[in-house]
Simulated scan of single mutants.
Amino acid sequence: CSGTREGRHVTGLRYLPESNELLVYLDSPSWTQEMTLLREIIRARMERAGAHVDGLVFKTTAPGHTPPATKERLRPATTERPPAPHADLSEAERTEIERQVAPIEDQKLREALENAMRASAEWAKGVQSKKEP
């Protein structure tokens, strides 16, 4: 809800993994009530965007609490990092990673692990290539 009228009243978010809920803190009781009424609409929009939660819980921020300024929270880091070392994998290296993850039945988990293993191998190969003359 960043950049929306409603988003300007959000003072904090917390994911509750044990219940798969999103806890949303708002700046006033009236906004807490408003968002509670819109709970299922918001959850359906999140679902369409690919973010599945079982529920949304809205609470009013404690009086006197001053959240960090939005600009401070969203400001990008000022220090530029050099790009991570990277080297393309050979067909044999890619095939070996695919073979290692093939036994995993869950497609999303298999793809996530394959992507992570590929990125790690590309990084390690890139580091190694920088060490070699």
Rank of each mutant, 00 (worst) to 15 (best):
T70Q: 15
A77T: 08
D106E: 14
V57P: 01
H9Y: 02
L74G: 12
E96M: 09
A102I: 09
K71I: 07
P133E: 03
T79M: 02
A44K: 15
E21A: 04
A112D: 01
P133W: 00
T78G: 06
E80G: 00
M46H: 08
L13K: 07
H65C: 13
N115D: 05
E40N: 15
V57N: 06
M35Y: 14
E114P: 04
E93C: 03
S90Q: 03
Y25H: 04
E34C: 03
L56D: 02
D88Y: 10
A77Y: 15
S19N: 04
K130A: 00
G7P: 09
P76W: 11
D27Y: 02
H65G: 12
Q100R: 15
A116P: 12
K71F: 10
L89N: 06
L89T: 03
S19A: 09
K131L: 14
S2F: 06
S90A: 04
E34Q: 14
A69F: 14
V24D: 00
D106A: 07
E34T: 07
L56F: 10
R81C: 01
Q107L: 09
R43Y: 10
V53L: 06
R39D: 06
S129R: 10
T66P: 02
S19H: 08
D27C: 04
K108R: 14
S129C: 00
A119Q: 08
D88T: 14
E132K: 12
Q33A: 02
A116H: 09
E40S: 15
R48L: 12
R99D: 09
P85M: 05
L38H: 15
S28W: 03
H9A: 00
P103W: 05
T66A: 05
A102W: 10
V101G: 13
P29I: 07
Q33R: 12
A44N: 11
A92G: 00
R75Q: 14
K71Y: 06
R48Y: 00
A102Q: 13
L74S: 14
P83T: 10
R14I: 04
R110N: 00
M46V: 04
L23A: 08
M46D: 01
G7E: 05
E114M: 06
N20K: 11
P68I: 03
D27V: 05
A119D: 12
R8T: 07
R110Q: 06
E6H: 04
A87P: 13
A69D: 08
L22S: 04
P85D: 01
S19G: 00
E98P: 00
R43M: 07
E34K: 14
Y15L: 11
A124L: 15
L74C: 11
T95A: 12
E122V: 04
Q33H: 11
A121Y: 06
P68A: 00
R8F: 00
G7I: 03
A49N: 05
H9P: 04
W31E: 08
R14Q: 06
A49K: 11
S30N: 15
E98T: 15
I42W: 15
A77K: 13
V24F: 01
L74W: 13
M35V: 02
R45I: 03
V10R: 08
G3W: 05
I104G: 02
E122D: 10
T95E: 02
I42F: 15
V53I: 11
E72N: 11
